[in-house]
Amino acid sequence: MSPAPQGLDPEQLRGHLDRERPGLVSGPLSARLIQGGRSNLTYTVTDGTSHWVVRRPPLGHVLATAHDMKREHRVISALAPTEVPVPRPVLLCEDESVMGSPFYVMEFVDGTPYRTAEQLAALGPARTRDAVLSLVDTLVDLHAVDPESVGLGDFGRPEGFLDRQLRRWGKQLDASRNRELPGIDELHATLGRSLPPSPAAAVIHGDYRLDNVLIGADDRITAVLDWEMSTLGDPLTDLGLLVMYSRPLDLPGSPISTTASAPGHPSPDELIERYAGRSGRDTSAISWYTAFAWFKLAVILEGIHYRYTLGQTVGAGFDRIGDLVPVFIEHGLTTLQEG
Rank of each mutant, 00 (worst) to 15 (best):
M69D: 13
I76K: 09
V84H: 05
V86Q: 03
P87V: 11
R88M: 06
L91Y: 03
L91A: 04
E94K: 01
D95Y: 06
D95K: 02
D95R: 05
E96A: 14
S97C: 02
V98F: 10
M99Y: 00
S101A: 15
F103P: 07
F108A: 15
V109T: 11
D110S: 14
G111Y: 07
Q119W: 03
Q119T: 15
A122N: 10
P125F: 12
T128I: 12
T128P: 05
T128F: 09
R129L: 08
S134C: 09
L135R: 09
V136W: 04
V136Y: 04
T138I: 12
L139P: 13
D141F: 10
D141N: 10
H143L: 08
A144C: 13
V145T: 12
D146C: 02
G156E: 00
G156K: 01
G156H: 00
R157S: 08
G160K: 01
G160F: 03
F161M: 04
F161D: 00
R164D: 06
R164I: 09
Q165Y: 06
R168S: 07
K171A: 10
Q172R: 08
Q172E: 04
L173E: 00
S176Q: 10
R179Q: 14
L181A: 14
P182S: 13
L187W: 05
T190Q: 12
T190F: 08
L191N: 05
L191R: 05
L191K: 05
L191G: 07
R193V: 08
L195Y: 09
L195A: 03
P199D: 00
P199T: 10
A200H: 04
A201S: 07
A202P: 01
